[in-house]
C-alpha cells in the first residue's frame, strides 16, 4: 500500500504500521533504518502517534528528530 512519510511516497505491505513506513523512508533516504527510536512520528493532524500505529492507504505521516 502507498503511504507518505514527510511527503515522500513509500510502499509498504498491507497491514503495515508507522514504524514499517518510517524504516522504508529512512532506507530510501540513505539513512540508518535502525535509528527509528530517534524520531517522533506524527499523523497529518500533528498528533504524535505510536510506532505501532496501523496505517491506511494514502495516509500521511511526518517524522521529526526527538528532542
Amino acid at each position: 500500500m502507498k503511504v507518505f512519510v514527510n511527503e515522500k511516497e513509500v510502499s509498504v505491505f498491507a497491514g503495515a504500521c508507522a514504524k514499517d513506513a518510517v524504516r522504508q523512508f529512512l532506507c530510501q533516504c540513505g539513512e540508518d533504518a535502525g535509528a527509528l527510536s530517534a524520531f517522533v512520528i506524527y499523523d497529518s493532524y500533528g498528533h504524535e502517534i505510536g510506532e505501532d500505529s496501523p496505517l491506511r492507504e494514502n495516509q500521511s505521516i511526518r517524522i521529526e528528530k526527538a528532542k
Binding site: 509498504v12 505491505f13 503495515a16 514499517d20 524504516r23 532506507c27
Partner: peptide, 9 residues
C-alpha cells in the same frame, strides 16, 4: 518478518 520487508528498498 516485517523488519526485513521494511528495509527492502
Amino acid at each position: 518478518n516485517n523488519y526485513v520487508t521494511s528495509i527492502n528498498d
